[in-house]
Structures are given as structure tokens and as C-alpha cells.
């Protein structure tokens, strides 16, 4: 039978994949996708907990807002990527280092 633990393990795994992707990829686009993965993993946890405590819809509501915020984040993030590309002709995150030191 499928228990809450299954969902939690799955979400943890996806979150770890997203984090690893964010830390290992130099392509800003894929880093943004990794962030989406992590957000999705969190959503799974929220929805799963809500399913096992169905007195109200707090978890699903939270997931709803997370989806909205993720959409906003994607819009702004991708516009920044376009700006960066205009400026540097690349989407390599290493090259966006004007503020270092």
C-alpha cells in the first residue's frame, strides 16, 4: 500500500535532484528549471500532507500559491536571462560576475 512515506521519499528525491542540478549546471536556463523541480517537490509534500489531514485545504491552498509564485519567478527569471544574454551574449551563470570581489 502507498503510505505518506512514499510521497515524502519521492519528494525528497526530486528536491535533491533539483538541488544537485542547480549546483552542477552552468546554464542559467537549466538552473531555473532545477528551481522549478525543487518547488514542485515541495508542492508534492504539501499536497500529500493535506491528503492525510483532510480537515481543510491548507496544504493544497499553499501549493496553489506556490504555483502562482513560481510562475511569477519564472517570468522575472527568464527576463533576467534575456537581459544577461543581451549584455554578455551567453547564458552561462559564471559570466554574470560583475559584482564579485
Amino acid at each position: 500500500m502507498i503510505s505518506l512515506g512514499h510521497y515524502l521519499a519521492l519528494a525528497t528525491l526530486i528536491f535533491g535532484l533539483g538541488a544537485a542540478g542547480f549546483l552542477s549546471r552552468r546554464n542559467v536556463l537549466i538552473q531555473l528549471m532545477s528551481i522549478e523541480l525543487m518547488l514542485n517537490a515541495v508542492n508534492v509534500v504539501l499536497v500529500a500532507f493535506n491528503r492525510f489531514h483532510p480537515e481543510n485545504h491548507a496544504g493544497q491552498l499553499f501549493a496553489f500559491f506556490v504555483i502562482a509564485v513560481a510562475a511569477a519567478e519564472a517570468a522575472v527569471g527568464l527576463s533576467i536571462v534575456i537581459s544577461l544574454f543581451r549584455l554578455k551574449k551567453t547564458v552561462e551563470s559564471d559570466r554574470a560576475d560583475l559584482l564579485k570581489h
Binding site: 503510505s3 505518506l4 512515506g5 512514499h6 515524502l8 521519499a9 525528497t12 491528503r51 492525510f52
Partner: peptide, 15 residues
């Protein structure tokens, strides 16, 4: 984290 979850998993409710 996954090992922890797997360890406590049997105690969690099923659907």
C-alpha cells in the same frame, strides 16, 4: 533525508 523517511515510512498512515 530519504533514509530517515524510509525508516519512519512504516509508521506513516496509508491511503
Amino acid at each position: 533525508a530519504v533514509s530517515t523517511v524510509v525508516r519512519i515510512s512504516p509508521q506513516t498512515p496509508t491511503l
